[in-house]
Design a protein around this nucleic acid. Structure first.
Length: 307
DNA sequence: TGCCAGGTAAACA
DNA sequence: TGTTTACATGGC
């Protein structure tokens, strides 16, 4: 990771890899007008980060294609805090998956009749992540078996009820609730927000595991293989194969993670294949064999054809 | 207005 | 081990 503080521009500079399309990433981030965890304003992305008990409001921009500029809005002497700068740069680095070399993926699928046109159309798109494990698991659980529009509504209710916020120039910025906060809730507090009883239990259970320190990104990553991580995640009540792979894909950053049961993936394949019905799981498994090692990226690119 | 939604656990055969 | 059903509610 390369980053430096630019005194003249008063912002953090993170070098961008090739290929990288800020526009395609921004399009992805703009897909819901009901997103509550960041705010896209023209070419700026505003986001509130929690960095060791401090609320840090950042604005990300990429005016030129070679670098990302990150303003740290609410902290006067950010330049004097190297740990803070590093934490911010690392967050953005993970969020945009800047450490990934995309060329092996493109080499693998550019001649694929299904994926070839898709990767060409969204060239430079990165798999936008959810670096925080609790947020990633929560978003997965929230999204189970409901439409995305409603999922965004539920997330907003959760965040606005239990998250932390910062007001800046008339706009309120939110960060995701801490697992410690959610672990202490009774299911009633979540069913009141229209969570189902089960999802309320799942979410509180996961929050407790993380709050107690039993479940961490580091522990999962230390297991080494994707199979071992998936097995460990699926042991947790409320986390099935889909959620486990969703989290492996967007948080643990395994490019071979594959949420096979994903309805969005099914509909995207139906669309690009020109089918009348969604393809069967067997058909998808056969197709995905050609994307081996890059199933997560294939899935993420395919989602883009729908929204 | 009925079917569908970025599934999972639990019951059942 | 593999299949079926309840969950629960909003969106379109």
């Amino acid at each position: 990771m390369h980053f430096q503080w630019d005194d003249h521009a008063d912002c953090l500079i993170v070098q961008l890899p090739e290929p990288f399309s800020y526009e395609h990433n921004l399009d992805y981030l703009s897909r819901s007008t009901n997103e509550c965890l960041f705010h896209v304003d023209n070419l700026d992305i505003y986001k509130l980060l929690r960095i060791v008990d401090k609320d840090v409001l950042i604005a990300v921009n990429s005016a030129d294609s070679a670098a990302m500029r990150i303003r740290i809005i609410n902290i006067e002497d950010a330049a004097q805090q190297p740990e803070l700068l590093r934490a911010v740069a690392e967050y953005v680095w993970e969020w945009f998956d800047l450490g990934r070399d995309l060329m092996p993926f493109y080499d693998l699928v550019q001649r694929d009749p299904l994926l070839g046109p898709v990767v060409q159309r969204f060239h430079g798109l990165r798999l936008m992540g959810i670096p925080d494990l609790f947020e990633a698991l929560s978003w997965g659980i929230i999204g189970q078996q409901i439409n995305l529009t409603f999922a965004y509504t539920l997330k907003r209710r959760l965040v606005e009820a239990f998250g932390t916020s910062l007001v800046w120039e008339g706009r309120t910025y939110w960060s995701f609730p801490s697992p410690e906060t959610i672990a202490l809730l009774s299911p009633d507090a979540l069913t009141a927000l229209q969570f189902t009883g089960k999802k309320a239990e799942y979410l509180i259970g996961v929050a407790a595991l993380i709050a107690e320190g039993q479940l961490t990104k580091e522990r999962l990553l230390a297991l080494g293989s994707i199979q071992a991580m998936e097995k460990e995640l699926v042991r947790i009540r409320g986390i099935g194969p889909w959620t486990a792979n969703y989290v492996l894909m967007r948080c643990l950053r395994d490019p071979a993670a594959f949420p096979l049961a994903d309805v969005g993936l099914h509909n995207a394949l139906k669309h690009v294949m020109g089918l009348d019905d969604k393809p069967s799981l067997d058909t998808i498994t056969q197709l995905a064999a050609k994307w081996a090692g890059w199933e997560a990226y294939a899935t993420f690119y395919l989602w883009r054809v729908l929204y």
